[in-house]
Design a protein around this nucleic acid. Structure first.
Length: 291
DNA sequence: ACCGCACCCTGAGCGC
DNA sequence: TGCGCTCAGGGTGCGG
């Protein structure tokens, strides 16, 4: 599940494959709700042009295109943005993996989940956007067109301070975990890093937001930035589908304190980590370290 | 305004 | 072996 760190690592590593290269061909899967802009229109607008830059806003990637249009990408749950030369078992289904010998990994071949394929006039590697569950999004914003999705975003998670969080939590009855996941409050947090930062804050995920103290907000905000910075350094979390643009895995999953560690001992006190469900989503915490 | 929940999708993993 | 079930979850939109 790509969250801020995975999206940032993707941004940094796909940038050299994308920015400044003229798009020669654009191929897609059939129109679906994955394409907020219809594929035919993407092709018309993008072929012959190049991206001038690649930015990140929360979990979105945003590229300015020659001529002033902007390309907006979201990786959703299972989105993978990578160079066509990448090699990784994470780019294959389990059955496809099983059909291959151990050393038989070769260059990725586009499959029915590879919704967007860009090739470039310089003849170098292409850029692929693959997404098994199609929760990802592709949208081309016209010159000067605003994006409601971007405009709704709150402060980037890497810039959130305790005072921001404290202000946002007042009079809110939602579970603090759900508030951390609200992109209009904090942009970039997903399930993994929400659980992790609440561990650092010493706050149980189900506690009502308004009952989190100022000091706890400080610790949560610091924890959030700490885990995200560290995750970016280690290449993100490769728990199920995430793969960096060059095909490599991240390593942050090895440093998780609580996420997906239900039943395993807390690294700090040895108490088994508890897994609960909050609003249809799993949450993990240490019942001894978090109050 | 806020909150909880259903929904979009597909593959993995499980029980029978 | 294979079927059918459940689970995973980011973001949106709706009803209360």
């Amino acid at each position: 599940m790509p969250e801020l760190p995975e999206v940032e690592v993707t941004r940094r590593r796909i940038e050299p494959f994308l920015v400044g290269r003229t798009i020669e061909r654009l191929e897609t899967t059939p129109p679906s709700y994955f394409f907020l802009t219809p594929p035919a229109q993407l092709e018309r607008r993008l072929v012959g042009r190049s991206a001038l830059n690649l930015e990140r806003r929360g979990k979105y990637l945003l590229a300015c295109i020659e001529g002033g249009e902007r390309l907006l990408l979201h990786l959703g749950m299972t989105g993978q943005l990578f160079s066509s030369g990448a090699t990784s078992v994470r780019l294959l289904s389990a059955t496809a993996r099983a059909a291959l010998g151990p050393e038989e990994q070769s260059e990725f071949q586009p499959d029915r989940h590879t919704h967007l394929r860009l090739s470039f006039t310089d003849g170098g590697p292409g850029v692929f956007f693959r997404d098994v569950r199609k929760f990802g999004k592709v949208q081309l914003l016209a010159v000067g067109e605003a994006s409601e999705r971007l405009d709704r975003l709150g402060k980037d998670a890497l810039e959130v301070e305790g005072c921001d969080l404290f202000r946002a939590t007042r009079k809110r009855t939602v579970a603090i975990k759900n508030l951390m996941l609200d992109q209009s409050v904090i942009a970039g947090t997903g399930n993994i890093y929400a659980d992790e930062c609440l561990f650092f804050g010493g706050v149980r995920p189900r506690r009502r937001a308004a009952r989190v103290t100022r000091a706890e907000c400080d610790r949560i905000a610091e924890g959030l930035k700490r885990v995200m910075r560290r995750s970016i350094e280690t290449g993100g979390s490769s728990i199920s589908d995430y793969v960096a643009p060059d095909g490599s895995d991240g390593a942050y999953q090895d440093e998780r304190r609580v996420y997906a560690r239900g039943g395993e001992p807390c690294h700090q006190c040895g108490t088994p980590i508890r897994r609960i469900v909050i609003g249809q989503r799993s949450a993990h915490y240490c019942p001894a370290c978090q109050k």
